[in-house]
Computed example of a mutant assay.
Amino acid sequence: MNAPPATSPEARGDVERILVLGCGALVNEMQAVVRHHGLVNVDVECLPAKLHNRPALIAGAVRERLARLGEQGKSYAQILLGYADCGTAGALEKLCEEFAAAHAAGDGPPMSMMPGAHCYEFFAGAGRFASMHDAEPATFYLTDYLARHFDLLVWKGLGIEAHPELAEMYFGNYERVVLLTQTSDGTQRVRVEACARAGAERLGLPLVIVETGYGELLDTMVSVAAPSRRGRVEVLS
């Protein structure tokens, strides 16, 4: 492997430290889980959210960030990727398998990833997302982050601003927009819903709002962490 965060955490006194390395689009949610659930032994790092539009680059970016951590001498008992497959065509799963094999040989920590195909699924839950998809397959999904940054990641990110004709190419077959909202904060909810409505209007589609909370992101982060351990929370963008 390419210089993963190695050696046992006990060797550095960082017993049971956990790394969560995720998509920059989930940084607010991952930070909130750490804060609200006492995960003081969890370090959070994020890769650029723009990788959302270039999923073929995600696995390589994960490997590079982990190699950099290894070069910095950082060590973890476990790594959780704040990604599901996310369009990587199995590349993240293969990377996790590579880490598992190295860990079994005594080289570095094990690494796991979020379940499912994408963040929409693990926020909503697999069964609930499947029901929504079955009800209307031609759905464009937004999370809170994607709603707030619709212009940057969708309108500009997909090139529609420069080439308006692409809007019909990308979205002509969609029937609705579904906002999967995570926040329970009233002020933030108003802002997010307003951004989602504005985005849906630009696409000429009706908007449906579904409250999900943090879904399996919360469940998985809590399950891999040991809240009683002492440590720091480090967030790098």
Score class of each variant (00 low, 15 high):
N2M: 12
P4G: 12
P4A: 09
P4C: 13
P5G: 02
P5M: 06
P9G: 12
R12I: 05
E16W: 09
R17H: 15
R17E: 12
L21W: 06
C23M: 07
G24C: 09
G24P: 12
V27N: 05
N28A: 15
E29T: 04
M30S: 03
A32S: 15
A32F: 06
V33Q: 06
R35T: 15
V40N: 11
V40D: 11
V40E: 00
N41R: 08
N41E: 10
N41W: 05
D43W: 06
V44A: 10
V44Q: 07
C46G: 07
C46E: 10
C46Q: 06
C46H: 11
P48R: 04
N53W: 00
A59P: 11
A61K: 15
V62P: 01
V62D: 02
R63C: 12
R65P: 00
A67D: 10
A67F: 02
R68C: 03
R68T: 03
G70R: 03
E71C: 05
Q72R: 00
G73H: 10
K74P: 01
S75P: 03
S75H: 09
L81I: 05
G82L: 07
Y83F: 10
Y83C: 01
D85M: 00
C86A: 02
C86I: 01
T88C: 01
T88V: 09
T88R: 02
K94L: 15
C96T: 05
E97M: 13
F99Y: 15
A102Y: 04
A102F: 02
H103Q: 15
A104I: 01
D107S: 13
G108C: 07
P110M: 13
M111T: 15
M111S: 10
M111F: 09
M114E: 09
G116I: 05
A117T: 10
H118I: 00
H118E: 01
C119N: 03
E121M: 01
E121K: 03
F123G: 06
A124F: 06
A124E: 00
A126T: 13
H133I: 08
H133T: 13
E136Y: 06
F140R: 08
F140E: 04
Y141A: 11
T143M: 07
D144S: 10
Y145Q: 00
R148H: 01
H149N: 11
D151A: 09
D151C: 05
L152K: 08
W155Q: 09
G157K: 04
L158P: 01
A162Q: 14
E165F: 12
L166I: 14
L166S: 08
L166V: 10
E168V: 14
E168G: 08
M169P: 01
Y170G: 05
Y170L: 14
F171C: 12
G172P: 14
N173D: 14
R176M: 07
V177W: 14
V178L: 10
L179I: 11
Q182C: 08
S184K: 08
T187D: 12
Q188H: 13
V190H: 07
V192K: 04
A196L: 11
A198P: 06
A198S: 13
A198Y: 05
E201Y: 03
R202T: 10
G204M: 11
G204Q: 04
L205M: 14
L205D: 13
V208P: 00
I209N: 03
V210M: 01
T212L: 02
T212W: 01
E216G: 00
E216A: 09
E216T: 04
T220K: 14
T220L: 06
V222A: 03
V222L: 04
A226N: 15
R229F: 12
R230Q: 09
E234I: 11
E234N: 01
S237G: 08
S237V: 12
